[in-house]
């Protein structure tokens, strides 16, 4: 049901440029206006989300300590799991953001009799890493369409990525890996009972959307070739704010690819995909476990009424005296004042 809904939405998204460009001929709307709008939504939306989170304070320091705290000098302190200083926190965040350390924690190998078993969770880490890193590399590779003189690091990454010279033009390794990662993540949602049970359409949709983007990209590279020179004229124009529709023929597949990318960008700030920036805000990870060493301020902390010693002593004066527990006269006076 949720999957079908996502597929329908995706089909509509593919149909829009097909009709818009193919039938109505609104080339510049789809090549220039919509991408600009989508990326404006992406940038302003995400900055809005960031500021929105930042508007709420983090009142208490609630680090999740997954390792030994810094205490006595002779006890080995776990720097990554229970960071006590800022740079240890940066290190923890680095491992968290770039290597998905918490997911990796699921890694576990067990022996059931003689058979070695791996649970699904390790695969989750692998699938996630494959997908995210491939996505990053693919994005960097795409800089060749946006910059006139392509920087050398982009050239190097592309060269490494097409290391296996299979066919003309060579296949990118990340193209295969991203599909493998995404395919796994999607399959997992369909097959793993507990994940399937808690998946919404908004979980399937981004996966399907990114898969479609990757597939249209791969199709263009290998089979249905567009005029790259014309594409670069367009994209370079977009990046330098001199947008113009090139003379050459931008293929239909390119319009679909561009529209899906625009959809992803516009959808990003309003979906679960904001975890990309949200992870940096996570208070259980980005705070040091130094609560007893330094003070954390809560801006809305307010005084509360509690039963004071003077009130309490008055209430229990008789039993205190009878039990021989000392009465503090100094504080009796405080109460009377």
């Amino acid at each position: 049901m949720n999957l079908i809904f996502s597929l329908i939405v995706l089909a509509i998204l593919i149909l829009i440029p097909l009709i818009g460009v193919g039938v109505l001929g609104l080339s510049s709307l789809f090549a220039i206006f919509i991408p600009y709008l989508a990326f404006a939504i992406f940038f302003f939306g995400l900055i809005y989300r960031i500021i929105d989170w930042a508007r709420s304070p983090q009142p208490y320091k609630i680090t999740t300590t997954s390792g030994q705290q810094k205490s006595l000098s002779w006890i080995k302190h776990s720097r990554l799991e229970s960071p006590a200083s800022s740079w240890e926190v940066y290190l923890r965040m680095f491992f968290e953001v770039f290597l998905f350390r918490s997911l990796f924690r699921n890694l576990r190998a067990d022996f059931d009799g003689k058979r070695l078993i791996y649970g699904s969770a390790k695969w989750l880490w692998l699938g996630a890493i494959l997908f995210h890193f491939s996505f990053l590399v693919i994005m960097i590779r795409h800089l060749r369409f946006f910059v006139n003189e392509v920087p050398s690091f982009v050239q190097k990454i592309s060269a490494v990525d097409s290391f296996f010279q299979l066919g003309v033009p060579p296949i990118y390794i990340t193209d295969i890996l991203i599909l493998a990662g995404l395919g796994f993540l999607l399959l997992r949602r369909l097959v793993d009972a507990k994940v399937n049970y808690l998946s919404y359409a908004s979980d399937y949709f981004p996966l399907l959307l990114i898969i479609s983007i990757a597939l249209t990209g791969i199709l263009m590279r290998l089979y249905v070739k567009p005029d790259l020179y014309a594409i670069k004229q367009l994209t370079y124009g977009l990046a330098t704010f001199n947008p113009a529709l090139p003379k050459g023929n931008l293929s239909m597949l390119f319009y679909i690819h561009l529209f899906l990318v625009s959809s992803l960008a516009a959808y990003f700030p309003f979906s679960k995909l904001v975890h990309m920036v949200g992870v940096f805000f996570s208070p259980t990870r980005n705070m040091p476990n130094d609560n007893r060493m330094s003070r954390h301020i809560n801006p809305w902390e307010y005084p509360v009424k509690y039963v004071t010693y003077a009130e309490w002593q008055e209430k229990f004066r008789d039993v205190l005296e009878e039990a021989g527990i000392p009465i503090d006269e100094e504080w009796t006076n405080v109460a009377q004042k």
């Binding site: 989170w53 009142p59 989750l124 904001v274 949200g278």
Partner: peptide, 22 residues
């Protein structure tokens, strides 16, 4: 949500990956 960033954030960024489920 206004007073606890943790609460606001946790409501937004879950991707339902299921790593916590079991």
């Amino acid at each position: 949500m206004e007073r606890f960033r943790s609460f606001k954030l946790f409501m937004d960024i879950c991707v339902r990956c299921g790593a916590c489920a079991d």
